[in-house]
Design a binder for these strands. Structure first.
Lengths: 123, 123
DNA sequence: TTAGTTGCAAAAGGTTTGCCGTTTT
DNA sequence: AAAACGGCAAACCTTTTGCAACTAA
């Protein structure tokens, strides 16, 4: 990850511009608009590199392929709609997770995922 | 999942007896002791069937292969130690996840995963 | 007897890697 | 020109599936 290439820039752009975490395939599709002959391998190699540089976060939803979002986003969690399967960012976060762990355990981080119906599908 | 076979019984046994969620590979290894020519395909087919019958739960830790545990356990979440990588069950659960979602969203379920150091590793 | 199950091998689906030509610096 | 990078295809790994043989009921 030393050089600035068209591919790398396009990949980072679509991830930063998206309002939701993207699958590798979605990154490929969206970045292909700018870089037509872009390959999936390049998407994966750049995602890996960008992640190691701390520019991306990986969002793992249980049983699904990893999605990627910009790392400069603030601490937040996700909501997945069971009907349309879209993933939404949640704005707030219940702190105080420490009390869930047995005493003697050190809680450094946590992940919360909600499931249900989004506004459109619950309507 | 209509018949009671040696394979199915062995697979269910090792998952129920284990004190932690098991990977498919671990189930194969442990159940092979009872059923020597057991195949991975059979493990997966039975896990799927047992899951659909509500006898198993799937435990997804971000970025890792799914693990399986008995479904008769009460609602709980998990803690993974970043040092020894072991997974622990948590006993309690903060309810009130509804408030995290935007209004209009219907929250049906949630998942919480804590990361840090377990008692032994935090010592 | 016969429909559900198993083992094996092959197929899938997503991610990684090797090779070699291309591009950035 | 040198080193990094990208495209393509093949390799990998985990999970699923097709199929003939087996087995529980």
């Amino acid at each position: 990850m030393e050089r600035k290439t068209r591919q790398r820039q396009a990949i980072l752009d679509v991830i930063v511009d998206a309002q939701r975490p993207l699958l590798a395939q979605e990154v490929l599709l969206m970045a292909s608009v700018t870089v037509p002959r872009l390959s999936l391998a390049t998407v994966y190699r750049n995602i890996k590199g960008l992640y190691e540089e701390g520019l991306l976060k990986v969002v793992h939803l249980p049983g699904q392929n990893p999605r990627y979002e910009p790392a400069n986003s603030t601490h937040h969690h996700h909501f997945q709609c069971r009907q349309c399967e879209r993933v939404f960012d949640l704005e707030s976060c219940l702190g105080n997770m420490e009390q869930l762990a047995p005493s003697g355990f050190l809680v450094e981080d946590h992940e919360v995922i909600l499931y249900g119906r989004c506004g459109a599908c619950a309507g």
